[in-house]
Amino acid sequence: MSELRILRPDDDSTLGDWQHVHNTVIPTHHLSMDDARDRAERHHLEVAYLGDVLVGSSTVRPPTDDTATATVIARVLGPHRGRGFGGELYARGLDRARKAGAEVIETVVLSSNEDGLRFARAHGFVEIERYVLPGETVPWVDLRLS
């Protein structure tokens, strides 16, 4: 079996793969390619492949000047869940967030993503807030690493 290959999306093809994972896992919050480019400028993005097969992605929103809180998000496409890929993406994101000075780690999961909520809770996150974004109907869940 091939090893997981994780890289930063540095062209439209790999950024399109990151966008595809986002839009598949979060169908209620579709991002355009321009949205994905904006995220790539503001956050640390990665995409994961098993051989040449796209399996997932991650986002690390670094801490800002006024807070030491970073957001770490790992997403794995449905057919590839339960094989440790999310854990590997999450561990890399957690390491990056801590190296960026994060003292508090949070994540955010769409409430309808039961696998994502189960993953977050299994990795020590506890729910701190639920909310619905303007124009959307499915709540988001903010969780903090305890």
Rank of each mutant, 00 (worst) to 15 (best):
L133C: 01
R39T: 10
H29I: 05
I73V: 14
V104T: 14
A122N: 10
R61W: 05
I128P: 01
R98K: 15
R75P: 00
V47P: 01
G51C: 07
R118N: 06
H30A: 09
E106K: 02
V60N: 12
L31C: 03
I105H: 02
D52K: 07
P62S: 08
G56L: 05
G87H: 08
I128C: 06
V138Q: 04
R96A: 13
I128R: 11
G135K: 09
G82A: 02
E127P: 01
S112Y: 06
G86V: 02
T137G: 08
G101T: 05
P79Q: 05
V53C: 01
T28N: 13
E88W: 07
V53F: 01
A122D: 08
T67N: 09
V72P: 02
S112T: 15
S32L: 11
A40V: 13
H29K: 03
E129W: 04
P62K: 07
D66E: 11
E88L: 14
L50N: 14
F85M: 14
D115Y: 14
D34A: 14
I128G: 05
D115V: 09
Y49A: 12
V141R: 04
T59P: 05
R130A: 00
A102L: 05
A68K: 03
L54N: 01
K99Y: 01
P63A: 01
A97K: 08
P139C: 06
Y90F: 15
E46I: 05
V60I: 11
I73Q: 10
L145G: 00
S58Q: 09
E114I: 13
R144P: 03
A70M: 01
V72F: 01
M33S: 05
P139R: 12
L110D: 07
L145Q: 07
L45V: 07
M33V: 10
A68R: 09
E106D: 12
P62G: 10
F125W: 06
D38C: 11
G101V: 03
T67C: 06
R118F: 07
T64F: 06
V109K: 02
D95S: 15
E129S: 13
S58W: 04
A40L: 15
R83L: 13
R83G: 07
